[in-house]
């Protein structure tokens, strides 16, 4: 490493004490930025079950529950039978959002949006198609993994049924 280049000008040096007094306050800003980000994510994780591995939580790998281990289960009543729903690709972002931050409102929104598609049955499931039939009563459930020692189970994070 070479030596540091010439220091700031004389005027800069004269202003240094005044600057340093202002710096005392500014010095706290980087730490506050990080603490606020962590607190915000921690709040989201504990209140709306936000994904531990996203955002500013620094909680990677700390739990069996993260967006990648959750599931969105969607069913509908088709010809009087409850059938699984194969979700259209256009709902991918919505589903990702539900996995990351599941709420009853966002589950209800997905259930309503699915009612806009037309459906056809295939291999015991229904899939969206251009010339199918409309269906009501979609049920959307977001579940997460739980662990009791080495036994894995699951529980509901959000659930909604479209009217």
């Amino acid at each position: 490493m070479s030596a540091e280049p010439a220091a700031n000008s004389t005027a800069d040096r004269a202003a240094a004490p005044r600057l340093r007094s202002h710096l005392a306050l500014l010095r706290a800003v980087p730490i506050l930025v990080l603490l606020v980000a962590i607190a915000a994510q921690a709040t989201l994780m504990t209140t709306v079950n936000a994904d531990r591995q996203a955002g500013s939580g620094f909680a990677m790998f700390s739990s069996v529950d993260f967006a990648g281990s959750r599931s969105v289960v969607v069913t509908a009543t088709y010809n009087d039978d409850v059938v699984d729903v194969r979700l259209p690709i256009s709902t991918t972002d919505q589903v990702d959002g539900l996995l990351r931050s599941p709420t009853e409102d966002s589950a209800a929104q997905l259930a309503r949006d699915l009612g806009e598609f037309e459906w056809v049955e295939q291999d015991g499931r229904i899939r969206a198609t251009a010339d199918g039939t409309n269906i009501d009563g979609f049920s959307v459930t977001v579940r997460r993994l739980t662990a009791d020692g080495h036994e894995l189970g699951s529980e509901v994070l959000a659930h909604a049924v479209a009217p």
Partner: peptide, 20 residues
């Protein structure tokens, strides 16, 4: 922060989180 999350997570200490 990372330490606190892991210390307070039973599934991390049991190894279930790492396995998953």
């Amino acid at each position: 922060t990372a330490t606190i999350w892991k210390l307070t997570s039973g599934s991390f200490i049991s190894g279930a989180a790492l396995w998953t």
